[in-house]
Amino acid sequence: MAIQLQHVSKQFHKKEVIHDVSLEVHAGEIFGILGPSGAGKTTLVKMIAGIDMATEGTIHVLGSRMPNLQTMARIGFMAQSDALYGELTALENLHFFASIYGLKGKKKKERIEEVLQLVNLTNDMKKAVHQYSGGMKRRLSLAAALLHEPEVLILDEPTVGIDPLLRQAIWEELERIRQKGTTIVVTTHVMDEAEKCMRLAMIRDGRLIAVGSPDELKKQTGTTTLERAFLHFGRAYA
């Protein structure tokens, strides 16, 4: 088991944004967190990544309790916003993040070349990032999250604002990364993306309303689409 959440709650200024969430993510799977915007998806993945702390409950990633700096070195995180330095070139951005993760010399150079190739930006690596299109920035963010070959990859809405072709390419890429043994957690509010996950957690108003594979969830509710299944589970909680 790669990630385990036990009775996790989170309060911001006395307002509860995550309420008693318990779930498990198995090693080597693509796990989706599905929910409308404002449901608490970002808060949840930030707690798993070790940036935020749960008010109650515990989170374990790769066997250690979060937040933990050693474990954070084994996690790759891609935030919702493209956290890149616009004045710098793609190459310089990757050099910076590689150094932060302690990569050096030949290994660093190799990894940078590999991830640039992976996201197909090798030809544009010397361009300043502020000249990049939205899609290119997303791909560069993904490349930065993959630099240190993380065992757990956390992606917060990785395909927002990306054209369908590129979205397809990113999902194929995620599948390839998964096959190498990486555990992937991805948040989304798009139903057809959720279909591509091996297992799913449905989140509404900070509560976990269902967990299971897309087929299981549809079977349980007797529906044909995830959207209907979501509505069904949502009603049960309302």
């Binding site: 070790g50 940036i51 935030a79 956290a83 302690g102 930065a144």
Partner: peptide
């Protein structure tokens, strides 16, 4: 936030 997601 991105930096704080690293072991920095």
């Amino acid at each position: 936030e991105r930096l704080l997601a690293t072991p920095l």
